[in-house]
Structures are given as C-alpha cells and as structure tokens.
Design a protein around this nucleic acid. Structure first.
Lengths: 158, 158
DNA sequence: TATATATACTACATATATGTGGCAAATACT
DNA sequence: AGTATTTGCCACATATATGTAGTATATATA
C-alpha cells in the first residue's frame, strides 16, 4: 500500500516549494527494504537479528513479516541454531509488485479515485482518465521491475 | 493520501489478471468527490443534506470535511435556514494537489520509498530512480490540473 | 541430554483513520 | 418571540495499521 500526500513548505529563503509526499505503508517499505538488502548478496543466509540491526526494523514486526514472506514463497526459513532466511525464488523472478501484493493481501481491487463502484472507461467519473495516467505509470514500473533490476551499483546504502 | 495495492484476480474465463489497487484515503476521495460535484455548477449553493444524499457520504463526516474545506479557503459557508456551501475560490484556481494537501494536512514531506531518512539523488537508495518516475507522474498530473480541467462532458455521473 | 541460538505463534498494546451522537449557534420566516 | 432549518463543534465509538511481550518450537553443538 502506498500513501501519497502533497505538501507546501517554506524554504529558508521564503521560497514557496510545492512538492509531494508519497509513501508506502511501513509494512511494504519493510518488505522491500529487507528483500532489496538480501538481493545484493542472494546466496547468503540472513538471521532476523542481523536484519533488525542493519535495517532498523522492530524485532517482532520483522519476524512476523519474514514469516509472511516465507509463506508467500519468496524466501525459506531454517529454524534452530545457525538458522535464518534465504531466497527461495531468485531475485530476478520477484517483481516489485509481487512483494507489495504479498504483504498487503489480495482482498482489494482496482478502484475509482473518487470511490465510485461503477466507474469504468465506459462509464467514467470526471477524474477517470486523469487517474488512469497516474496508475498506469505506477503499474508499468512496479510490474516491470524485479529485485535484481535496481540500482545496486549507484546506491551506497547498506 | 493515497493507498495503492496490487492484486491478482481470476476472471470468469480463468484468465489470470494482474492489476493494481490504487486508492485515495476516504477523506481525500470525499473531498474531491464533493468539490468536483460542486464544480459542475459552481455558482450554486449546496446544503450538506443534498451533498450527503447525492454523494453517499456519511452525515457528520461530510460536515466536518466541509468545515475543513471552508477553513482552507476553497468554499464559504452560510449558517442558518437557507444556508449552505458555495465556492470561494473559483474551480479553475483549485488544483487537485491543493485539495488533497488541504484535507491531509501538511505535516509530511517527500519520503524515500524504502523509508530511509537520508535518501536523495546524491545518496540514493536502490529504488530511488524507480520511485522518482512514479512520483513525478503523479506530481505532474495533480499539480497540473484544476477542478475545471476534468471530464465533465464525458462523465455521466451525478 | 543439556544448552545456546534461532524461528513461529498468539495475544495484547498503541496509533491513526474513519464514523457517529448530541447539542450549540446562526438565520429566515411567521 | 417562536419555530424550523441549517452549519459548527466536541467527545466518543469503531476499524485498521503498527508495534510489543511472552512463550513455544526447532536444531546444532557439546
């Protein structure tokens, strides 16, 4: 899930700055943060402890998420001493959309921006075409890129 | 605020359909639903009662929203018998981004898709450029269109 | 078998978004 | 002044997302 907010902000020099706030839910953020981190070195076995320390995600929340990601087939887990998590599917088989979908659940549908049930191309609301433009950009990016299609060389993080 | 979810859905013919769920918060949906409805006939005075019936928004929630929209300067309100709401700013002066921003509050900022505080073009996360593409599409559409730039002829709704 | 270390699960706690109830205040009309 | 109709406001109720606590279970090693 993604949250988007617009904002206005005064810079120090009194310049009016008109920007956007667009944010995944913490849950989706965490899932992508974890998997993109693991994708840098996909062969490794990662303990919850190491992920928590490295990625600043709260202990129990991360563990619950790992269980979800495991049940969804992205990773497998090994219990007991010397246990941990590693990839089950390869990173180049995992699309960004799949990750978001998995952790957010599938009990949703493509909705009208104004919340109308009956909105469609044949019977559009006043914002239909406007919204479709935004949605299609998001769709093409998130369904078109896998975990291994990201900027691992550019990013100095982790 | 906007919530986006991906979804998979089986059509009747067993075709696997891979789509997107992308949704404003109810609050933003309501605000846009109300203002786009009013923008079809901007000169009129609208009672809360008529808006509730027409737009299927719960009584008290709509009234609270109208007060917000009024305080934010989009509309003015007339109390008492024969009172109601009407535009203060003209619809062609109200950008979609302004509406979302007004009802969601301004205590936010443009964030990293993975939730990193320090993420920027100079110090990007692995998803930075990917996310910027999506965000800029949303930004250009919502800061580029006003309430009067919508498809009033096409939409049979209301 | 005992111990250390790891994941799995359940239930609860907190924060935020959303929705509701009741009453006060304003205004037109009689 | 009295009444009907309308907006304004406060406090609470509910739903969902997020975060935490405690305990059970699994496994490598000694």
């Amino acid at each position: 899930m993604i949250n988007i907010k617009y904002f206005f902000k005064f810079a120090a020099d009194i310049l009016l700055f008109h920007g956007i706030f667009m944010k995944l839910t913490n849950t989706s953020e965490y899932a992508l943060r974890i998997l993109t981190y693991m994708a840098k070195d996909p062969g490794q076995l990662y303990t919850a402890k190491s992920l928590i320390e490295k990625l600043k995600i709260s202990d129990k929340y991360l563990r619950r998420l790992m269980t979800t990601l495991s049940k969804e087939g992205f990773i497998y887990s090994i219990q007991g001493r010397d246990g941990g998590y590693s990839f089950k599917k390869q990173p180049n088989e995992i699309f960004l959309a799949d990750v978001v979908n998995a952790v957010e659940g599938m009990d949703t549908y493509a909705g009208c921006v104004l919340g109308f049930e009956e909105c469609s191309c044949e019977n559009p609301c006043v914002m239909h075409s406007t919204w479709v433009k935004v949605r299609e950009e998001f769709m093409s990016v998130f369904t078109g890129k896998t975990l291994s299609d990201l900027d691992f060389e550019l990013a100095k993080r982790y």
